[in-house]
Simulated scan of single mutants.
Amino acid sequence: MFATVSHEMEVKVPASKAWRLYSSLKLANVVLQKLSHLINKIDILEGDGGVGTVLRLQFPPGTPGFTYYKEKFTKIDDEKRAKEAEVIEGGYLDLGFTLYRVRFEVIEKSEDCCITKATIEYDLKEEAAANASIVSIQPLVLIMETAADYLTVNDED
Protein backbone atom coordinates (compact mmCIF):
# COMPACT_ATOMS: atom_id res chain seq x y z
CA MET A 1 0.00 0.00 0.00
CA PHE A 2 1.80 3.12 -1.27
CA ALA A 3 0.59 6.61 -0.30
CA THR A 4 1.75 10.20 0.06
CA VAL A 5 0.75 13.16 2.18
CA SER A 6 2.08 16.72 1.87
CA HIS A 7 1.76 20.28 3.09
CA GLU A 8 2.86 23.66 1.69
CA MET A 9 3.56 26.92 3.48
CA GLU A 10 4.47 30.40 2.25
CA VAL A 11 7.55 31.96 3.87
CA LYS A 12 8.46 35.62 3.41
CA VAL A 13 12.19 35.09 2.77
CA PRO A 14 14.12 34.43 -0.43
CA ALA A 15 14.18 30.79 -1.53
CA SER A 16 17.99 30.79 -1.39
CA LYS A 17 17.91 31.72 2.32
CA ALA A 18 15.33 29.03 3.14
CA TRP A 19 17.28 26.42 1.19
CA ARG A 20 20.49 27.19 3.11
CA LEU A 21 18.64 26.13 6.27
CA TYR A 22 16.77 23.14 4.82
CA SER A 23 19.78 21.74 2.97
CA SER A 24 22.03 21.77 6.04
CA LEU A 25 22.27 20.12 9.44
CA LYS A 26 21.38 23.51 10.95
CA LEU A 27 17.72 22.56 10.52
CA ALA A 28 18.26 19.71 13.03
CA ASN A 29 19.73 22.19 15.53
CA VAL A 30 16.77 24.57 15.12
CA VAL A 31 14.35 21.65 15.62
CA LEU A 32 16.16 20.49 18.76
CA GLN A 33 16.15 24.00 20.25
CA LYS A 34 12.48 24.70 19.60
CA LEU A 35 10.74 21.32 19.37
CA SER A 36 12.28 19.17 22.09
CA HIS A 37 8.79 17.84 22.88
CA LEU A 38 8.75 16.35 19.36
CA ILE A 39 12.34 15.08 19.04
CA ASN A 40 14.56 15.06 22.10
CA LYS A 41 17.87 14.01 20.57
CA ILE A 42 19.51 13.85 17.13
CA ASP A 43 22.85 12.10 16.72
CA ILE A 44 24.90 12.33 13.53
CA LEU A 45 26.13 8.77 13.00
CA GLU A 46 27.75 9.26 9.57
CA GLY A 47 28.43 12.13 7.21
CA ASP A 48 28.55 15.91 7.26
CA GLY A 49 25.04 16.76 6.11
CA GLY A 50 25.40 15.66 2.49
CA VAL A 51 23.93 12.64 0.72
CA GLY A 52 24.69 9.52 2.74
CA THR A 53 24.49 11.29 6.11
CA VAL A 54 22.84 9.08 8.73
CA LEU A 55 21.02 10.54 11.72
CA ARG A 56 19.52 8.79 14.74
CA LEU A 57 16.42 10.59 15.99
CA GLN A 58 15.26 9.82 19.50
CA PHE A 59 11.73 10.65 20.56
CA PRO A 60 10.46 11.57 24.03
CA PRO A 61 9.13 8.79 26.26
CA GLY A 62 5.46 8.18 25.57
CA THR A 63 5.69 8.88 21.83
CA PRO A 64 3.18 6.46 20.29
CA GLY A 65 4.65 3.62 18.26
CA PHE A 66 8.41 3.88 18.73
CA THR A 67 11.27 5.56 20.58
CA TYR A 68 13.80 6.11 17.77
CA TYR A 69 14.67 5.65 14.14
CA LYS A 70 17.66 6.15 11.89
CA GLU A 71 17.31 8.12 8.68
CA LYS A 72 19.66 8.55 5.76
CA PHE A 73 19.84 11.55 3.43
CA THR A 74 19.29 9.97 0.02
CA LYS A 75 18.99 13.08 -2.15
CA ILE A 76 20.03 16.71 -1.89
CA ASP A 77 19.40 18.65 -5.10
CA ASP A 78 20.62 22.25 -4.85
CA GLU A 79 19.22 23.12 -8.28
CA LYS A 80 15.69 21.90 -7.50
CA ARG A 81 16.09 22.77 -3.79
CA ALA A 82 14.88 19.33 -2.71
CA LYS A 83 16.14 17.09 0.10
CA GLU A 84 15.02 13.53 0.84
CA ALA A 85 15.64 11.26 3.81
CA GLU A 86 14.53 7.65 4.29
CA VAL A 87 14.10 5.69 7.50
CA ILE A 88 16.68 2.88 7.41
CA GLU A 89 16.26 1.37 10.89
CA GLY A 90 13.68 1.25 13.65
CA GLY A 91 10.58 3.41 13.90
CA TYR A 92 8.22 2.96 11.00
CA LEU A 93 10.16 -0.04 9.66
CA ASP A 94 9.37 -1.91 12.89
CA LEU A 95 5.66 -1.27 12.29
CA GLY A 96 5.37 -2.89 8.87
CA PHE A 97 6.45 -0.01 6.64
CA THR A 98 8.78 -1.00 3.81
CA LEU A 99 9.42 2.65 2.88
CA TYR A 100 9.12 5.88 4.83
CA ARG A 101 10.59 8.88 3.00
CA VAL A 102 10.41 12.57 3.88
CA ARG A 103 11.05 15.24 1.25
CA PHE A 104 11.47 18.96 1.87
CA GLU A 105 11.32 21.33 -1.09
CA VAL A 106 11.83 25.08 -1.31
CA ILE A 107 10.03 26.68 -4.26
CA GLU A 108 10.77 30.25 -5.31
CA LYS A 109 7.64 32.38 -5.49
CA SER A 110 9.19 35.85 -5.82
CA GLU A 111 12.46 37.57 -4.98
CA ASP A 112 11.62 37.71 -1.28
CA CYS A 113 9.08 34.94 -0.85
CA CYS A 114 9.07 31.15 -1.22
CA ILE A 115 6.96 28.08 -0.61
CA THR A 116 8.28 25.31 1.62
CA LYS A 117 6.76 21.93 0.99
CA ALA A 118 6.99 18.73 3.02
CA THR A 119 5.95 15.36 1.61
CA ILE A 120 5.83 11.95 3.24
CA GLU A 121 5.90 8.93 0.93
CA TYR A 122 5.34 5.53 2.46
CA ASP A 123 4.75 1.94 1.54
CA LEU A 124 3.18 -0.49 3.95
CA LYS A 125 2.85 -4.26 3.99
CA GLU A 126 -0.77 -5.36 3.51
CA GLU A 127 -0.86 -7.11 6.91
CA ALA A 128 0.17 -3.84 8.58
CA ALA A 129 -2.30 -1.62 6.68
CA ALA A 130 -3.93 -0.47 9.94
CA ASN A 131 -0.66 1.31 10.83
CA ALA A 132 -1.24 3.82 8.02
CA SER A 133 -3.22 5.80 10.60
CA ILE A 134 -0.01 6.69 12.48
CA VAL A 135 1.36 8.60 9.47
CA SER A 136 0.89 12.31 10.12
CA ILE A 137 2.17 15.38 8.30
CA GLN A 138 1.64 17.43 11.50
CA PRO A 139 5.19 16.97 12.92
CA LEU A 140 6.62 18.20 9.59
CA VAL A 141 4.22 21.16 9.63
CA LEU A 142 5.59 22.06 13.10
CA ILE A 143 9.15 21.79 11.73
CA MET A 144 8.23 24.02 8.77
CA GLU A 145 6.59 26.60 11.06
CA THR A 146 9.63 26.57 13.34
CA ALA A 147 11.95 26.96 10.34
CA ALA A 148 9.82 29.83 9.00
CA ASP A 149 9.95 31.61 12.37
CA TYR A 150 13.72 31.10 12.53
CA LEU A 151 14.22 32.37 8.97
CA THR A 152 12.14 35.51 9.44
CA VAL A 153 13.89 36.52 12.69
CA ASN A 154 17.48 35.70 11.79
CA ASP A 155 19.29 37.88 9.29
CA GLU A 156 21.95 35.33 8.35
CA ASP A 157 22.53 35.39 4.63
Rank of each mutant, 00 (worst) to 15 (best):
S24R: 06
S24M: 07
S24N: 08
K26N: 11
K26R: 13
K26H: 13
L27K: 09
L27Q: 10
L27S: 08
A28N: 14
A28T: 14
N29V: 05
V30S: 06
V31D: 00
V31Y: 00
V31T: 13
V31I: 15
Q33E: 15
K34W: 01
L35V: 04
S36H: 14
S36F: 03
S36R: 12
H37Y: 15
H37T: 12
I39A: 04
N40W: 09
N40F: 09
K41D: 14
K41C: 12
K41I: 06
K41W: 07
K41S: 14
D43C: 01
D43V: 01
D43R: 08
D43G: 02
D43E: 13
D43T: 10
I44V: 15
I44K: 13
L45G: 09
L45K: 11
L45F: 06
E46V: 13
E46R: 13
E46A: 09
G47S: 10
G47F: 04
D48R: 12
G49E: 10
G50D: 14
V51W: 10
V51S: 09
V51D: 10
V51E: 13
G52P: 05
G52K: 10
G52Q: 09
T53P: 01
T53C: 07
T53G: 08
V54L: 06
V54S: 02
V54N: 01
V54G: 01
V54I: 13
L55C: 05
L55I: 04
L55H: 08
L55R: 15
L55Y: 04
L55P: 00
R56S: 11
R56G: 00
L57S: 08
L57W: 05
L57H: 04
Q58L: 08
F59P: 01
F59C: 03
P60Y: 03
P60W: 06
P60M: 08
P60D: 03
P60Q: 07
P61H: 08
T63C: 05
T63D: 04
P64Y: 04
P64W: 02
P64A: 11
P64N: 06
G65V: 03
F66H: 07
